[in-house]
């Protein structure tokens, strides 16, 4: 445990020095305010610019609720371009150290491979979640300002579920890092697998019980306050994360 926190601190310091905290937060904030703006003012904006021919807006369309807009922010922005940029931002976390020899040198110290893997996993998850959380809370306040009240506690619960999904994504990148040499291919493989799980999770809820993206189904039902909240959705992602971590430990090829 002690070694994990020491190496985790290195990871966080590196992110501070690389100004990653600043730009990733800015990026997610940008994504977070874009969606509510589009949902609220597309009509106004199009009208003000003189009306574009061919675009019809249904005047009777009901204005969306705050939680629906927040959901659109996550499913339409964070889980698409946001996820891709996020994965690219940490795809080199292990590959770079492996290729430069830093990893080998760390393993001559009294550090086990599981400690190293855990520090990478939790370090990058923490960095990602700090940036995403700041971005999404700004998005929350902006959405509430535009669309009306929604309880912040419920949004926080939603974010907790979403963080489990991000933990799975980071653990996937960790696993691929032990199998693939090039950080570019690690990124591509992680992005593809995440998108496959995202799409498969949308097929039906029975299937998503067995998928890591099932936790997003749970998050969605929490956010929309439907009555079929099923915490069994938590099991699959945790199992997948453990498989990824122990898979990485087996493949990292260290004493």
């Amino acid at each position: 445990m002690r070694n994990i926190s020491i190496l985790l601190k290195v990871e966080l310091l590196e992110a501070v020095r690389n100004i990653k905290f600043i730009w990733l937060t800015l990026f997610f904030t940008l994504l977070g305010v874009t969606q509510p703006l589009i949902d609220k003012y597309m009509e106004v904006i199009i009208k003000s610019f003189g009306g574009v021919e061919g675009i019809m807006i249904d005047p009777n369309a009901p204005e969306p609720q705050a939680n629906e807009v927040l959901l659109a922010t996550f499913s339409g922005q964070f889980n698409q371009i946001g996820l891709i940029v996020l994965i690219i931002s940490f795809m080199g976390m292990i590959a770079n150290e492996k290729n430069s020899g830093v990893q080998g040198f760390i393993f001559t110290r009294p550090v086990s491979s599981l400690e190293y893997i855990s520090s990478k996993l939790f370090g990058n998850w923490l960095i990602s979640m700090v940036c995403i959380a700041i971005g999404s809370f700004i998005s929350y306040f902006y959405t509430v300002y535009l669309f009306g009240y929604y309880p912040i506690v419920d949004f926080f619960l939603f974010l907790v579920c979403y963080s489990v999904w991000i933990l799975f994504v980071v653990s996937t990148a960790v696993l691929f890092s032990t199998l693939i040499k090039s950080s570019m291919f690690i990124g591509v493989a992680t992005i593809l697998l995440s998108i496959i799980f995202l799409l498969a999770g949308n097929i039906n809820s029975t299937l998503s019980l067995f998928l890591p993206s099932g936790v997003l189904t749970l998050a969605e039902s929490l956010l929309l306050q439907t009555h079929d909240i099923n915490f069994l959705f938590m099991i699959a992602p945790i199992v997948y994360i453990l498989i990824n971590v122990y898979g990485a430990k087996a493949f990292i090829n260290q004493v």
């Binding site: 290195v10 590196e14 430069s100 020899g101 830093v102 080998g104 040198f105 393993f107 001559t108 110290r109 009294p110 550090v111 086990s112 004493v255």
Partner: peptide, 18 residues
Amino acid sequence: PAHFKSMIGYSPDTPALY
């Protein structure tokens, strides 16, 4: 391995540092 490695000091041919 952890106890073994705590007893050694190693310098590689090309030092890889942070």
